[in-house]
C-alpha cells in the first residue's frame, strides 16, 4: 500500500511552498485532517486558518488570487464544493481567478463519519463550471504532479484528494499532462476507465478478469476536465466495451463525462457505470462501504463481464 493521499499532499504543498512566495494556503479548521497544517507550520505567514467559514474562505482566496497569489483552499470536498460553490462559480469560473480548490476526503474516504461527510457529487458540480479544470488524484506520484501543476499552470482548478492510502499505480517517472488520461494496464476486450482510488481497484479487477480469459485495459482518467476524448474514443473502438469506475455518483461525474464523449463520437459500445447508484452512503469501515455499494474489485470485474457479454 502506498502512502495516504492526504499525507502526500501535506508534504508536497510544503515542499513546493519554498519554490514560490505567492503560494498561500487556506483551511477551514480541518488543517490537521487535510494536512494543510504541514504547510502552515513551515510558512505561518502564508497560512490562513479561516475557522469554519468555507464560503468566506473561498471569497478570501479569490481576493488573494486577484492580488497575484496562488491560493490553495482546503477542507473536506463535500463542504468545499457546496458551501464554496457560489464563490467558485462567481470568482473561479465567471471571473477566471487562479484559485486551486483542494477537495480533501474525496468519495467515501471519510467512511465512518457517514453520508453527511462523503463527497459523491463534487465532480459533477465542479465539472459544469466553465473554465474550471477538474482532476482526481489516484496515487502518491500523481498527487505530487497535480500540486506542482496547480502552481505552475495559471487557471482555476478543482483537485480531489483522499483521506486514504492508494497503491502506487504509475511507474516511476511517468509523465502526466493536463487534459490527458493514461493507460496503466493494457488489454483488448474491455476498457475500464477509472479515477482516484478506483484506478488501483480497476487494476485488481483486471487481474481477476485475466484469470477468466478477459483482457481488460485500465485507464487512469486523472483529468476529468478537460477530458481526453481521443483516448476514450480509441479505447472504445479498440476494445469494444467500456466500464467507468468512480467513487462518485454515476450521474454527472466520470461516467457522465465518458458517456458524453462516446455519444458525441457516435461510438455506441456497451457501457457500464460503476459508482454510487444515485444514492447516499452510510457510516462504516471504508472497505465495507466500498463492498456494499459495489465499488470493489469484484463489482468492477462483474461490470466488465456484463459489458463484454453485451458486445
Amino acid at each position: 500500500m502506498g502512502k495516504a493521499i492526504r499525507d502526500v499532499y501535506g508534504e508536497t504543498i510544503r515542499k513546493y511552498g519554498a519554490t514560490n512566495e505567492n503560494i498561500v494556503v487556506l483551511d477551514a479548521d480541518v488543517s490537521g485532517s487535510t494536512k494543510s497544517a504541514v504547510f502552515g507550520k513551515e510558512y505561518p505567514d502564508r497560512f490562513y486558518n479561516c475557522g469554519i467559514s468555507e464560503y468566506a474562505m473561498m471569497g478570501m482566496a479569490a481576493g488573494m488570487a486577484k492580488s497575484g497569489k496562488i491560493p490553495f483552499v482546503n477542507t473536506f470536498a463535500v463542504f468545499l464544493t457546496t458551501l464554496g460553490s457560489l464563490a467558485a462559480r462567481t470568482f473561479m469560473s465567471y471571473s477566471g481567478l487562479n484559485i486551486k480548490m483542494m477537495g480533501g476526503y474525496g468519495g467515501l474516504s471519510d467512511a465512518f463519519d457517514g453520508a453527511t461527510h462523503h463527497a459523491l457529487e463534487d465532480i459533477a458540480m465542479m465539472r459544469t463550471l466553465p473554465g474550471v479544470s477538474v482532476m482526481v488524484a489516484s496515487d502518491a506520484a500523481i498527487t505530487d504532479w497535480m500540486v506542482k501543476t496547480a502552481i505552475e499552470t495559471d487557471g482555476p482548478m478543482y483537485i480531489r484528494l483522499s483521506r486514504d492510502a492508494a497503491p502506487d499505480c504509475h511507474p516511476e517517472g511517468a509523465q502526466f499532462e493536463m487534459g490527458k488520461g493514461m493507460v496503466v494496464r493494457e488489454g483488448s476486450d474491455v476498457t475500464i476507465i477509472a479515477c482516484g482510488l478506483m484506478v488501483s481497484t480497476a487494476v485488481a479487477a483486471a487481474e481477476k478478469l485475466a484469470e477468466k480469459g478477459i483482457q481488460a485495459r485500465v485507464v487512469d482518467m486523472y483529468c476529468i476536465k478537460p477530458i481526453d476524448a481521443e483516448l476514450i474514443e480509441a479505447c472504445a473502438k479498440e476494445t469494444g466495451a467500456v466500464v467507468t469506475a468512480e467513487e462518485h455518483s454515476v450521474i454527472g461525474g466520470l461516467g457522465g463525462a465518458v458517456a458524453e464523449v462516446l455519444a458525441k463520437a457516435g461510438c455506441a459500445v456497451p457501457t457500464e457505470m460503476v459508482g454510487m447508484q444515485d444514492r447516499h452512503g452510510e457510516s462504516g469501515p471504508y472497505a465495507a462501504l466500498l463492498k456494499k455499494y459495489g465499488l470493489d474489485a469484484d463489482a468492477v470485474a462483474a461490470a466488465a463481464e456484463r459489458a463484454v457479454s453485451r458486445k
Binding site: 468566506a56 471569497g59 488570487a65 492580488s67 497569489k69 464563490a87
Partner: peptide, 10 residues
C-alpha cells in the same frame, strides 16, 4: 465582501 478582505490581507 470576503474577496475584498482577501485583497486587503494580500
Amino acid at each position: 465582501y470576503p474577496l475584498a478582505l482577501g485583497v486587503a490581507l494580500s
